[in-house]
Design a binder for these strands. Sequence first.
DNA 1: GCGATCAGCT
DNA 2: CACAGCTGATCGC
Length: 621
Amino acid sequence: MSSFAGRMKEYPTISLDRFDRENLHAQAYFLSHCHKDHMKGLKGPLLKRKLQFSRTVRLYCSFVTKELLLNNPKYAFWEEYTVPLELESPTQISLVDEASGEQEIVVTLLPAGHCPGSVMFLFEGCHGNVLYTGDFRLAVGDASRMEQLHSGSRVKDIQSVYLDSTFYDPRFYQIPSREVCLRGIAELIGNWISQSRYHVVWLNCKAAYGYEYLFTNLGEEFSTQVHVNSLNMFKKMPEILSYVTTDRRCQIHACRHPKDEEFLQGNRLPCGSTAADGTPLRIISIKPSTMWFGERTKKTNVVINESVCLKRAMNSDLNVFLIKSCKHFFFQIKDFLSYLQPVNILPSVVPIGRSLTEVTHMLRMMSRKRSDETMFIYKPLGVLKRSRVQRPSNNSESDNELFEGLDLVPPRKKISMNQEAEKGEFGVGVVSASRLHCSPVGLNFMDCTESNGEEEDDNEEEEGQGDTVKNKGPKWEDFFTPEVLSDSQNSQSQSCCSVRSTSPSRATGSQTPELFSEEEETPDNNKGFSLSLSASNHSSQNLDSHLDDTLILHQDQNQTSDGVTLQSEQEQLSASQTSSDFDIPSTPESKAPQTADLLHLYRKLASREEVVLREEGQGFS
DNA sequence: GCGATCAGCT
DNA sequence: CACAGCTGATCGC
């Protein structure tokens, strides 16, 4: 949960994702996405009253966020005070202060990939450039693909990053891709619902938004629709709308009820559905969750592989905990920060179990302050990612420090993107235009399609392919912006007395806009959400020792005597290792489950056969 | 009666 | 531990 107090030291007269207490005095409000923990105070009567007496105070957010916000009647009064902004379109806002007069600030919304409508905010003004991430989920290399983080060919000078640091912790260094997760779940669901029409699936989705990726993919996979309570929130999102329905006669449900667990115990779906002919439904519940560890404390048979956690529940057929990554994890954040090299990094979340000092220490190593202390020579105008040679993040000592005191073996092999840098193939500050002469998003899509499954190497063929050569597997949903801008939305008025749009080049001083001039050739950025369902894995959190009836299935890795962890052949890497979501080694001393074994397991579970769990490494039967 | 906060639960 | 909620109890206004 976000513990951000709402204000940034550089621009204290604006408030983000917090609307109570001192934030009541803000001159402008920003909402990064429509999750409750970022909306504290947003329906407060004092704030409502303030709006009624103000001509200039407005709430700025994405079009989709406004749509989702106003869908809730409790926030309907925001209608006339909310100004939706286009993605990646710098907008100048006047902050009117009775005491100090008027102050101009330029804000740019960047796709955050956390849930529909989620954005990061880049502020540029007289107190420097500041990035507020909100909750975000980016793949390694995404920062280099964001035009608005660059001025021409250079990375903008970022004073501070206000970071969602929930998972900025080496304990979260391994995650499987969303494809791995989805494939496992789709197999399980397929095996289940194909048995009879009484075999149904319930998706136990807690948060209001962020599961749409799952709905659309399952809908596509099984040529069906997913039952939900209401279509209202999706009414202007046709890409999602076509995959959801309020017709209860389908086999995949994501409906909710306050007492849905009780319903399930009574062999009913939360919508109350039972079979018309009285035949008892056979229900499996699937719980998409980033966090599933709490569930392990219960005395149940649990099977964990890299993407799903299967639990045989007492009264229903089977519970499945789908590991979902709606946020970024350690290496993605590390990559993001080491690319931007801000002067300050301020965590918005200090995970329980960590101290603020620990988090600050880890973050500091990614900041420019750390760099100044070491051999890194600060380049005031920044450098392009491909030219990074001696970034602190590439320093194994930095990694070692991060892993100090943790009872896991850190991935000593550098993430592949950094290997080239170490080899010095790319000189500092010298990046050919051709390497970036594309919309990175579009290139990414092409690259991963063509290179899927191939050995990643360091040969010269990589040149000219930008940062995206490490992305394996066609993951189109990764490359869509989290915005759906239907015509009707686009035509919504952005009028506000204090707002006007500025062109990207004027606002950023970009010197070489042609580097990003082919956006129209990308997959249609405006036609889909960046639906951020993905798979996350448990990290090596000592699960094994205290989970007597838990079987951990994971991946193999060779470890040499000197502690250097080497990845074995590419074919031993799971698909999760080859996705763009992460370029990192797998859990040390773990073993990869074979696809056939997993399929066998899924079928057994789906058919309610007992699964005999053995010691790790001996497989299952 | 309302909102804020917290514990407990999923 | 962590997500992103929800419910219910308690307290102050």
